[in-house]
Amino acid sequence: MRNSLAGLVSGMLFGVGLMVSRMADPAKVLNFLDIARHWDASLAFVMGGGVAVASVGFALARRMEHPWFNRQFPVLATAGITLRLLVGAGLFGIGWGLIGLCPGPALVALVLDPRPVAIFVVGMLAGLWGVRFLNQRR
């Protein structure tokens, strides 16, 4: 129950943050990436603000033995920089640069303007779940 509440509050903050920062609008994202014309540096402030607060959170957590509502902090992936990581990031960058949407903003934009965004989200879910499914069968 406490875990679900933590998820809900965190998700709500994330959703508001994406709308307030205008990052749910692909035009803002594409104009951030378009450094040659119409450059809109706003996204750098989103990343900067996000990393500033989150890094304080992660630093505080290092002094804790366990999270508030959980027994232990997980050990996160330490596989190093693999080809799979770089290929994945590259494919992600192509899709992000073509459309201007990534997973979080895509879900928010889906609610704001369902008709065109749904096509993107269908492809995104197929990709996300498809890779997971193939991984599990291997």
Partner: peptide
């Protein structure tokens, strides 16, 4: 829109911090 971007970014950062601090 640096002001909106920064405020929105702070909220996203707070969301990430809260999820890690509360349930890891």
């Amino acid at each position: 829109t640096p002001g909106y971007a920064l405020v929105g970014g702070l909220m996203i950062g707070l969301s990430a911090a809260l999820l890690w601090l509360s349930i890891g």
